[in-house]
Design a protein around this nucleic acid. Structure first.
Lengths: 155, 155
DNA sequence: AAAAATGTCGATTGATATAGTAGAGATTAA
DNA sequence: TTAATCTCTACTATATCAATCGACATTTTT
């Protein structure tokens, strides 16, 4: 699958936004996410905007602007996010459900590689479709204890 | 993980060589593998040579030359092959056992993404470390019936 | 109305990886 | 000696990735 840096940044940003998520209109600035997660700001801009167009985030402009989750973190799976940012989860596109592409092998239906890669795909999808942003936030809390860890911030 | 074309070609070639594998000195020409599997010949040359230096294949030069498996197909796992051709199986190198690299997140030990990606890595590795070239050949036979399928060859 | 802090959008860049090609050489069997 | 093979190194074209930039739009505060 090989997650790109872009995809990793997306997930890191979503954790920040997930931890911040409260019903209400609270919003987090790009700059804050960038600083807390050590992500180049201009690059992060693109990514957040992309997640907005995916319907994962919403934004507020102007001086008190920023981003927040558009949906509850329980309803955002890693699979959805990664698919939107990176494309197929499958190791080869000839076994991808949503991004299928014919491959160059002589007979796709009877291809042994394909059958193995389908297993790999299923294993990946099973995990990534199960894990939500909310669960990632849980893990963060469990791993770090309930109070914010100073190391989470760049000084 | 995103298998590259190079990696896929390597596996396709290994299936041909696995099916051909008999104790003895029988050898398959690059040209034949290239034709049967629809792989650019000069590109395949590199790949087979690479698998040779990995200790997976051996070769014979000269007019009756070609390649064959150096070890029994039961002892060659897909994990080994892909790792040699492509590098890490893990989606991010900060969870790779053999190709570990530090990532840019603020605190790697307490990183939630890392913990998910570790699960993904384990799932991938479990499959790919289990499946051998011999098993791939079994699957081919099962999928195609015991006699060679004409579609296997480019006419 | 103006200023300042934010998000928005499209283009550009530099580095690296990928897929493939090319040429000259070494080895072996007939 | 010839012809068919593998071997080795280099090259190239294209795509992708990570990041940067500039100009613009929106909103709040003063």
């Amino acid at each position: 699958m090989k997650l790109s840096v872009r995809g990793e940044y997306a997930l890191r940003a979503l954790i920040v936004l997930g931890l911040d998520y409260i019903e209400g209109d609270s919003v987090v600035r790009i700059h804050e996410i960038s600083t807390r997660q050590n992500i180049p700001k201009r690059f992060l801009e693109q990514i957040l905007n992309d997640l907005k167009s995916a319907g994962v985030l919403e934004s507020k402009r102007g001086i008190a602007g920023g981003y927040r989750l558009k949906r509850a973190p329980e309803n955002i799976t890693l699979a959805e996010v990664i698919r939107h940012i990176e494309g197929p989860l499958a190791p080869v596109s000839c076994v991808s459900e949503r991004f299928y592409e014919k491959c160059s092998c002589p007979n796709e239906d009877k291809c042994a590689i394909r059958s193995v890669m389908k297993e790999v795909r299923d294993a990946i999808v099973k995990i990534l479709e199960d894990v939500t942003v909310a669960q990632m936030c849980e893990r963060v809390k469990k791993l770090q204890g309930t109070q914010a860890n100073p190391l989470d911030y760049i000084i």
